[in-house]
Nucleic acid binder design. Structure first.
Lengths: 241, 241
DNA sequence: TCCCATTTGTACGTATGTATG
DNA sequence: CCATACATACGTACAAATGGG
């Protein structure tokens, strides 16, 4: 595949090489393999090592390669395994956060909160919070991972019995605390390595990120701050006004 | 602030410079400003231009700077805002769609609607609709492009006088038709080539996509269907409940 | 329209540092 | 301690894009 003579669109040398490497990664490499050393590749493509590195940079940025100083360049890319749901897009109500009847608990710990969480829930960095992580599947396909942060440590004992289902229902029925949605922030970004693994998507795939602050119905104090990451290729959020 | 003698952690020269630049961005620059030319900065830091570029690369990757070939390096970061989140982001109310006072008209045509638009507004594929495209900038940085589809062709004459400002305000004042938000769908995907060009982002960068259906206050019929594409690195949507 | 200065983008060359096994 | 391979840095040159004269 000669990409050097591409009539329609101008590409730089390093972009050509990146495209060529990407093609070879898909066909000739498997996850866990190492690329040939930069010197060899540079020689093969007849470019300076810097130019070759610039091409590899692109693929590292896309999450398909990982550099290991003194060792080599590791191949992370998997062959595409989900050709199916390019079309299928589920809808999900914007208010569904934390109330998925199908979600499953992945994590349940007490931990000092980060600055980000502290700011959101109005506590100090390092204050202990309950941290739950749940994963929602649709048709057994993971679509959404949610981190829940709860500042009221008195809930800890009860929450340890939460295994699956709707967290908000659980809190409502077990702790008699109906939660009120206070504010929501919606953003999008690329998936990080661990996230793409968890959600079984290619690295760098776009994610919808919904951050929700829930307050206690009774006292009005912050009860839960949740951050959900949703596969943007499968889910869209809907809202009726 | 001398970062060159940092006892605890080893930092490379370009990392020191990136940290220094980040510090200066916060204190001495505002969104929309331009950095001094790379040559000047390189001279100031007494490094090669490549080294300086490597430092700037870091801040570009973090979304705080944006390069414009032939022009300069644009500052995106808002002062006083950063320490809270890992990513400095503007916020935009979820209800802002079509009502940006700063938006500018890019396109204004009559055209047969696609199946997608036809489905949304409840007409037949091929039926003529008014199609407007507007671009919103913040501090002269493009952040959001919106396609508006309006089925009522009687508005065409009046709408041709719309140049900039808030489209919804224009419709309200010129056509005496207050619009009502009916439903909203939010998704995310990677930018296509043309979109990334228009929004001045790298290809494949994640976009927030908000599709809104607005109805006439009076008749309740569909008045406008809009599709907005927003740079996810700069804008997040907020909602108070 | 064309040219020109400015600024970023790409590419080559070279040298040395750092990490790994 | 050494060979290998990636990381950083300096130097140089030219290309491409932009904006102004």
């Amino acid at each position: 595949m000669d990409l050097s003579r591409h009539p329609t669109s101008f590409t730089t040398r390093y972009q050509q090489i990146a495209a060529q490497l990407e093609h070879e990664l898909r066909n000739n490499y498997r996850c866990g393999d190492y690329l040939p050393p930069e010197n060899q590749l540079a020689e093969r493509f007849a470019v300076n090592r810097h130019t070759l590195r610039r091409a590899v940079d692109e693929l590292v940025d896309r999450g398909w390669l990982q550099r290991r100083q003194g060792v080599g360049t590791l191949v992370l890319m998997r062959p595409y395994d989900y050709p199916l749901h390019s079309q299928a897009r589920f809808s999900q109500n914007l208010l569904d956060q934390g109330s998925h009847p199908t979600s499953e608990r992945l994590l349940s710990v007490l931990r000092p909160c980060t600055e980000h969480v502290a700011t959101a829930i109005g506590k100090q960095e390092g204050d202990t919070v309950i941290h739950l992580r749940t994963l929602r599947r649709v048709n057994n396909v993971p679509v959404c991972v949610i981190d829940h942060y709860l500042p009221d440590l008195r809930w800890w004992a009860a929450l340890q019995h939460f295994r699956s289902g709707s967290l908000h229902d659980f809190i409502n029925s077990q702790l008699k605390e109906p939660l009120n949605r206070h504010s929501t922030r919606i953003s999008a970004r690329r998936a990080l390595a661990k996230e793409s693994q968890l959600l079984e998507i290619v690295p760098q795939a776009p994610l919808l990120c919904v951050r929700t602050l829930n307050t206690c119905d009774s006292s009005g104090s912050v009860a839960e701050y949740s951050v959900s990451l949703t596969r943007a290729d499968m889910i869209e959020l809907t809202m009726e006004h």
